[in-house]
Simulated scan of single mutants.
Amino acid sequence: MDGSSSYENGDVGSSDLQPQDADYSYLPSLLDELALLILARVPRSEYGKLCCVNKRYLALLKSYELSKIRRAIGIEEPSVFMLASGESRWWRFEHHFASFSKLPDLPSDQCFAAGDKESFCAGTHLLVSGKEIEGVVVWRYELDMKKWFKGPSMISPRCLFASVSCGDFACVAGGIGTGTGMEILNSAEKYTPENKSWNPLPKMNLRRKLCSGCYMDNKFYVIGGQNENGVDLTCGEFYDRDKNKWELIPDMLKDSPIPTSRSPPLVAVVKNELYSLDASSNKLKVYLKKSNSWKELGNVPVRADHSRGWGVAFKSLGDELLVIGGAWNSYTGQGMTIYTCCPDPNEEFLHWRCLGSGSNRMSHFVLNCSVMVV
């Protein structure tokens, strides 16, 4: 991240050139279905050039069908979207942080810009939830359009909720309602980017806020948090789509200390294994499903304990774990560092790879971070 990038001042693949409708009638035209299969195998970084071929190709490249085909044939390129403290615009990082760009200004009001926000991805949509003067709203950035759009709002607007990206859809659950009673919720919803809609899911067994979500074994897990009485929850639960119901997992976090004012649990799933970053000890743990227990895998190379887990990004990045935060040797928290590793639950310690430092570009304190795999 300390290097320069040709994408720094604009969206990746953006161009001032306009699609051309030249006369290619002497060439045989590919059917849209075949063209999409070919385009799906082209790196997304080249889409900006292909958009200029003609208006037909521009439409194909912006179609939701293209992302579905890429996912079906296993061609996925993760992008990291991040908003750091002191920044007014979101950053997008690609190719393991080798290239980066700024997103357009998010056209919200000042209340939204200055307040706390929560983010997650669904398909090619980055969704950012926060509070405007009129109430809680959701803004979405559509990668193919390279634009921000407002809405649609959740069925039950909320904050401090669990969220998870499940490829071509996303789910949210729990949190604090925005009504006059500030009710702790047990409701859940599913967002589908193809039709830009929210649909209700069955209610969880327990009401919880400050909880975290993950997607494992094709199930939506909600872990930890606090109930309506402010009691810390060590249980988790998951939504089984086949049964259309939530199943409780008692004592899922029984081995993890829960300090006061901590962030929601820092969890990520890689290769269908659940990992947790303990913000009180900076230790990485892997969840052992059969025994409902956790195994330590050594320390992470960032200071997760500096702000009790707040300001740290802990995400899955394809087949790797990604952690972003203040440098381990910095007791003031200054200096952002970015690390990845390929976790192995059978190892005692993991080998972390440093991807660089963002200390000269942005604050070490990460406000929001989401990974889009398309």
Rank of each mutant, 00 (worst) to 15 (best):
M204P: 04
C159L: 07
S370T: 13
G3P: 00
L27H: 02
S330Y: 03
R208M: 11
K243Q: 08
D105S: 11
G236I: 00
G86C: 08
K283H: 14
G213A: 03
F97W: 15
G123H: 06
F365W: 01
S15F: 04
S163V: 11
S4Y: 15
R308V: 13
D2T: 13
D217P: 00
F365I: 00
N282A: 09
E77D: 15
K219Q: 06
V302S: 05
S156I: 15
T192R: 14
Y287K: 06
S25I: 00
G151A: 10
M154T: 08
G318V: 01
S153L: 13
M204F: 02
M216A: 03
P345E: 05
R44L: 14
K146L: 05
S316A: 12
F169Y: 15
I73Q: 07
L50E: 08
L17D: 12
Y24I: 07
D240S: 03
A304W: 03
L127V: 03
E134C: 14
T180A: 13
W328T: 11
R140T: 14
E183D: 15
L274H: 07
P157E: 10
C159Q: 05
D319A: 05
S67H: 03
L201E: 09
L321D: 12
C52L: 14
G115F: 06
C111D: 01
A35Q: 05
F112C: 05
D251C: 11
I75H: 12
V12L: 07
A114Q: 09
I176T: 09
S63I: 13
G13C: 07
M154Q: 15
Y24D: 04
D23L: 02
P264L: 04
P152S: 06
P343Y: 02
